[in-house]
Design a binder for these strands. Structure first.
Length: 648
RNA sequence: GCCGAUGUAGCUCAGUUGGUCUAGAGCAGCUGAUUUGUAAUCAGCAGGCCGUGGGUUCGAAUCCCUCCAUCGGCUCCA
């Protein structure tokens, strides 16, 4: 007999060789129906795998990550089996589960798999799923594993196996399909009831641009059809909040083929929104002792040679602008730091003057690869809410923390709750990709980690995500389709001060090198607005939204009163417009609801006589009538409450 | 940049196997009627080189190729 300890610390006794499924069955038959995988001493196992010694276990259902992982990973194998049946000779790369669903990278050989083929693959999968094929685990030697895939002619699996250690290799078989796999898997394919293949994409083998590009098929599965229906519906709903769609509908921004790819045009309402955000940040920065500066949109090539950016990015960027003068070359500014360094150099600073903080809404241009452009989140011309802080080494931590405070303040003000904080460090294996001494890198990384610790931020550490001149603290936010975007960023930099030979005079009357912090709380105005649109579904907070109020006269007899109402409000800096169209009020309500204007004021005979307005809150409905003067106070009060919250 | 898909009025979309397609609809726009009470009043008008360039064909929005743009990924992101 062996002892099995459960998460609640109770212990059950079983015969040696008991399986997870049998344990679940012993607890309750309901549990046995729901369980998908089992953790045995913190390793996730199949439910069929015999347990031969005392162990601590945890049973995983759908709601556990481990349960979903087993489910989706098994689904990837099921898809592979279907693919092998439909496309004989197809070769397989890797096929993992992901946050939502799974994919498999395949080399279809002579076949081309497109979206049009997905329904047929799905159908095959359903057919195989209903056969309740067992997922059978088999431990194999490296030699046998290599033999199997060499014979099969699958060079991708051979490559993977070569890197594995003998004695740790297992195969899983479902139906006629055998895969190199660590597991765990479901007991059989019958668990998979609802299947949807979502898309086909290209993906480089092992993520290397120079390797062959495989075909990646994304899919998702569920134990119940209803769950799939709900998921697909959720996806549809999310697409309605896509900033590209709403940006067009709400007339915030546009693109023009003639102007150029990735070069956004801010329409009046979008420009207004952005300006308000900029002013909001400017005010905060003023409080934190920043000075606004302005630098030109181009700079001599030499400037970027000095900074090191030219060497790193010059080749793949917008190419130098030539002038009538022989040999003279300018670059469109791809970042603001070198300019700010030159501003710093203009002065002679003493240690008493530091920190010096230069802020600029600086528009920069980067030649992003065409396939990477994406709405406002990835563009070729964008405005960073940039600033550079030049400080003494002993001020670094304090300054860094102050920047974290600004970012957190902004996120809180705009109610960004679902962000993650990422410490982006060098790839320790590829130090040659970065400039600067190891010593400086270590100092920078230490500064960030200390600041983060002091602020008690929960962080993820990502290696290889640093900028080439220094490590970063990045604030990541997801869009409606769960894609991660970097918004706020803070970077410690010992390198540029050296390259630009920046100095201040210390208390010892000697020259010293300042440390530089690069930071952008929004990241870029474009990306921030994009994510803001998706988070709010276009319903911006009252203080921020371009149009706060629309006045709807019931017929043109009341147009003058409506105009008076609007003018009255505008005199108090409340942003209102009037809908004077010759339409029924129902129509005006509908159209303005869709424009997501927060307050709709309906005025007719009653309101004219009593100097009132009837209030309708967007998305909520009729709120009754109120004297105009009272409404004015009501709105001002609501806006002030929001601003007070922000300024706390 | 790479793989796959898509591209028809300002917007959302029809357009069957190439043949009254001289390309349609709804919304938006304009004109007129209507004077309206909480999510679409009616009628009329106007609006398109069917992304671009080339080809196949008696005939192309429809088939083929080039380029451009967009979408989903990959790679990249100072």
């Amino acid at each position: 007999m062996i002892k099995i300890s459960l998460p609640d610390n109770s212990v059950m006794e079983f015969e040696e060789g008991v399986t997870g499924l049998e344990i679940a069955q012993a607890i309750s038959s309901g549990l046995a129906k729901e369980v998908l995988a089992i953790s045995v001493d913190d390793e996730v196992w199949d439910l069929h795998r015999p347990i031969n010694k005392d162990a601590k276990i945890k049973l995983h259902k759908w709601n556990d990550e481990e349960g979903k992982h087993a489910f989706w990973h098994s689904s990837a194998h099921l898809m592979a089996e279907a693919l092998e049946k439909l496309y004989p000779g197809i070769k397989f790369g890797i096929g993992p589960s992901i946050e939502y669903g799974f994919y498999y990278d395949v080399d279809p050989g002579g076949w081309t798999i497109t979206d049009a083929e997905l329904p047929a693959i799905e159908k095959k999968m359903k057919e195989l799923a209903s056969q309740k094929q067992e997922y059978v685990r088999e431990e194999v030697t490296k030699k046998r594993a290599l033999e199997y895939y060499r014979k099969k002619g699958d060079e991708y699996k051979v490559e993977l196996i070569k890197e594995l250690e003998d004695g740790t290799i297992s195969f899983y078989k479902n139906g006629d399909f055998t895969d190199l796999c660590r597991g765990p898997h479901l007991p059989h394919t019958g668990y998979i009831k609802a299947i949807k293949l979502l898309s086909v994409a290209g993906a480089y083998w092992r993520g290397d641009e120079n390797s062959k590009q495989l075909t990646r098929i994304y899919g998702i599965t569920f134990p119940k059809q209803k769950m799939l229906d709900e998921y697909l519906k959720m996806l549809e709903e999310a697409k309605k909040r896509d900033h590209r769609k709403l940006g067009k509908e709400l007339e915030l921004f546009a693109f023009s083929q003639k102007v150029g790819q990735g070069l956004p045009l801010w329409l009046p309402k979008g420009a207004q929104l952005r300006e308000r955000l900029e002013n909001f940040l400017k005010k905060i920065q003023k409080e934190y002792g920043y000075n606004q500066v302005i630098s030109p949109h181009i700079g001599q090539k030499e400037l970027y040679v000095t900074s090191g950016h030219y060497e790193k990015y010059g080749h793949d960027s917008f190419q130098p602008i030539n002038t009538p003068a022989e040999g003279e070359e300018f670059l469109l500014k791809p970042m603001n730091c070198p300019h700010h360094c030159e501003i710093f150099k203009h002065f002679q600073f003493s240690y008493k003057d530091l920190p010096v903080r230069y802020a600029e809404f600086g528009t920069v241009y980067r030649y992003e690869q065409s396939g990477e452009l994406h709405g406002l989140t990835r563009v070729r011309g964008f405005t960073q809410d940039d600033a550079h802080i030049f400080c003494r080494p002993d001020q670094l931590k304090e300054e860094f923390i102050k920047v974290i405070d600004i970012i957190l303040k902004i996120f809180r003000a705009l109610q960004f709750e679902n962000y993650t904080v990422q410490v982006s460090l060098r790839d320790p294996e590829r130090k040659e990709d970065y400039i600067g001494s190891d010593e400086n890198w270590e100092k920078s990384e230490k500064a960030i980690l200390e600041a983060v610790k002091e602020k008690e931020l929960e962080i993820n550490v990502e290696y290889g995500e640093a900028a080439f001149y220094g490590p970063k603290l990045d604030f990541m936010v997801k869009d409606v389709l769960n894609r991660k975007w970097q918004l706020g960023t803070i970077q410690v930099d010992y390198n540029l001060p050296e390259r630009f030979d920046l100095e201040y005079v210390g208390a010892d009357n000697q020259k010293h090198r300042p440390v530089m912090i690069h930071r952008a709380p929004f990241g870029s105005m474009e990306r921030f607005v994009a994510v803001l649109i998706e988070h709010t579904a276009g319903k911006f907070p009252l203080w921020l939204t371009p149009e706060q109020i629309v006045v709807l006269p019931i017929s043109d007899k009341f147009n003058d009163y409506a105009k008076n109402v609007s003018n009255f409000l505008n005199n108090y800096d409340i942003r209102s417009i009037v809908d004077l169209r010759n339409e029924k009020v129902g129509k005006k309500i509908r159209d303005n609801e869709l424009k997501k204007i927060p307050y709709l004021l309906i005025v007719g005979e009653k309101e004219v006589e009593s100097e009132q307005v009837s209030i309708r809150r967007q998305g909520v409905g009729d709120k009754g009538a109120m004297p105009l003067k009272e409404f004015k106070d009501y709105i001002i009060n609501e806006i002030n409450e929001q601003l007070d919250f922000i300024n706390q």
